[in-house]
């Protein structure tokens, strides 16, 4: 498999607080990789570093074989998309929200219309394009944010707790969308989640983060059946106190 990200000895601190320490990891093209761990261990910071919203304090982040420290930041960011736990919605129509990334890329109007309609179909919001986005329910807003994040076909989709605060029906829909995006678009998906069951349902490989350290990276099957680290075992079995 082709290497999408290579992370070498990466650490991140905010002031005196060390959030991530000495992370080493490879993420491959087309896989669904999940950073799993309890709240506050650095999962979101990890995704923000991959998206270049934050820069590492030390260490290297290699994207498609190139060091992101010397690449034009915008060129790298324009090939990725990130979905936040609570999506930020532009105060305009659903159509304009989803079309945004295409408009700033100066895609022609007809293509934009077609791509937006296709994206709405994919997330199960067909016919909602004229609706004011602020009137959407939490689940619909999250699905609209998905459509907005994938409409320009990014190489990488970063998902930060994509189903937190959603009801089971919407969780199922979002998980279905994640699978579809991977199978239909071949997008590399990297997610952060503390939801063990969800990670088990959709991830290919899992990295367990605890107190800013990546304590174990392995296939989903290995992690959930025979984790190497005792702390991984404790977290997966709900015995980890945090």
């Amino acid at each position: 498999m082709k290497e999408m990200f290579r992370i070498e000895n990466l650490s991140k601190s905010f002031g005196n607080k060390k959030v991530l320490q000495n992370i080493n990891l490879k993420i491959f093209t087309g896989e669904i990789f999940a950073f799993m761990g309890p709240s506050g261990v650095g999962k979101t910071t990890m995704l923000r570093l991959l998206n270049l919203l934050e820069m590492p304090t030390t260490g290297k982040l290699i994207f498609n074989g190139n060091d992101t420290a010397i690449l034009q930041k915008n060129n790298v960011m324009s090939r990725m998309s990130m979905l936040f736990q609570r999506p930020a919605i532009f105060n305009t129509s659903v159509f304009n929200n989803i079309a945004y990334s295409l408009v700033i890329r100066r895609v022609d109007k007809k293509t934009i219309e077609k791509k937006v309609i296709d994206a709405l179909d994919l997330v199960g919001l067909a016919g909602c394009e004229k609706q004011k986005s602020l009137t959407l329910s939490g689940g619909e807003a999250q699905r609209m944010a998905f459509a907005r994040a994938i409409v320009f076909k990014p190489d990488v989709l970063l998902l930060d707790e994509p189903t937190a605060n959603l009801d089971p029906a919407n969780v199922a829909k979002i998980e279905e969308i994640i699978r579809k995006i991977r199978s239909e678009l071949g997008t590399t998906i990297i997610m952060a989640s503390h939801n063990i069951h969800q990670v088990r349902r959709i991830a290919d490989r899992v990295g367990i983060l605890l107190n800013g350290e990546l304590i174990e990276v392995n296939s989903k099957e290995q992690i959930f059946t025979h984790p190497f680290d005792a702390r991984s075992y404790a977290f997966i079995n709900g015995e980890f106190i945090y």
């Binding site: 990725m80 936040f84 930020a88 532009f90 305009t92 990334s101 700033i104 994040a149 320009f152």
Partner: peptide
């Protein structure tokens, strides 16, 4: 305007100028 709006612009491939325009709209 929430900081997340500006970050969303960047995550969708926008530049500083796009972020300023989005902020103006919001």
């Amino acid at each position: 305007v929430p900081k997340l709006i500006i970050e969303t612009v960047y995550t969708l491939g926008g530049t500083e100028k796009d972020a300023a325009v989005a902020t103006l709209k919001e």
